[in-house]
Design a protein around this nucleic acid. Sequence first.
RNA 1: GGCGCUAUCGUCUAGGGGUUAGGACGUGAGAUUCUCAAUCUCAAAACCCGGGUUCGAUUCCCGGUAGCGCUACCA
Length: 510
Amino acid sequence: MSEVRVRFAPSPTGYLHVGNARTALFNWLFARHKQGAFVLRIEDTDVERSKTEHEAQLLEDLRWFGLDWDEGPDRPGPFGPYRQSERKELYAQHATHLIDAGHAYFCFCTAEQLEAERQEAVKAGRQPMYSGRCRQRPREESARKVAEGQPASIRLKIEGGSFAWNDLVHGLTTFSSDVIGDFILVRSDGNPAYNYAVVIDDRLMEISHVIRGDDHISNTPRQLALYQAFGWEPPQFAHLSTILGPDRARLSKRHGATSLQNFRDMGILPEALGNYLALLGWSPHDGVTEILTVADLVAQFSLDRITKSPAVFDQEKLNWMNRHYLKESPLRRLAQMAVPFLAGVGYLPIEAGASDPSGLRGGATEPLLQWLERIVDAVLKNLDRLDQLPEAARLIFEYDARRTADEVMTPDDRAASADVLAAFIPPVLAEPGLTYTRFREIAKGVQKQTGKKGRELFHPIRVAVTGAVSGPELEKLIPIFEEGAKLSLAPPIKSTARRLREFAEAAKLF
RNA sequence: GGCGCUAUCGUCUAGGGGUUAGGACGUGAGAUUCUCAAUCUCAAAACCCGGGUUCGAUUCCCGGUAGCGCUACCA
């Protein structure tokens, strides 16, 4: 068993937390770095939380994140099945084995009894721990009660002085066995408890390294007790620190975006999220490099460079990293990703049940995609994430001449720039197909005529044409207006000339 | 309460018995551009506290404090 085998074992709750995503990522990086196997196991024995329909969503989230697995529910391997719900027979067999060997016993205590004992212990200031009342019952008696149909859970006998392991992140970690009660292996309804199922699964799947959140540190001695009872060699453990919110409390839904789906909806690129998460609790050897490709991460990853301390999730830094990857991304990819964001605010015509995967009426045609590339190229520098695209591109899709003339352009501005506008607008209106080159020539003419240049010249033009005091370069915007107008979209894109005509009218210029 | 884990700029981190304690995000200033942004340059900003060990501790040890976790027939 020298081969490295790691696993990620999520519950399909329909919500994959970034903390879990980071755990999955670290497992995956370690497996790929060691050229071992990455196993995906679904922990779906808890029917309350697990919904089978959520499993597909989970796999989809993981794939979007860029992870793949060698074995899993959709990729059968030699250690299947990979859903806990399909492994109940295995858990039952091993529990029987433990009882026969005298390491486990049936417990007939009711929930009420246990709760009462617990309350008492707390009141008396003692450690609330199972008393072990059913431990001494003769095996024959227990067997008889079970045969009679009395509900029973199965508990493990905890013995021995202490449990210790050499944690790959934290180093030597020790627990006294005094603080661990005889815990439940199999619940009275026949379902295995987490600490039991996880040991059976990890052992049977020949997992070599268990990499998981540090909220499991206190569970580890229990699991060690099980390995001991079975006479099994335990795997290596590595416990990852918690991800916290800005208030230093464990990152949760009330902090805002915390699921993979949330980040996807924000227009965060998977490679940006992966790079960011990899740096949350891990750093490369040089201690300087921050931008790392997946290949870099796989090549450099090592468990001994993982931080022990918890980390506060910083959306600002994620945004920065996303901006970096956005700029590196091919325009075509971004144009395609832009469609749902623009369609979502009504800038592009969507159609329910459209045959095209983009969901657009008429489909995402080549001319449309080329035009979207221009838009993305123009506004990219202003974006942290794609969900800011509608706002950044608004001046392309919306132009209100009335508002521009009355509000955006102040009376002072208008008075000061009357000569520029008077010289600029007529030649543009007379131009059939405006290009940026032509626009430049006209602007030059205005400069000669009015003697104004730079900001004095371009600001009034910008405002009149875009309806905004700031935005992308006119060099990029003019072609977008012109090309957009030709696309006959619904709602339509107004050409430069049309904008100026409306503006002149609203401002009563001529 | 008990047990456990953690502690370097606001945040993510590098480092390590002697360093000008390094990088990044964010922040501030400047440069540049028709504007915003982007970009570039510069700046401010940290070793939790108290004991020990040592010639010397931010680094090693102990204690305190704080934060977090576990203490379930949740996972």
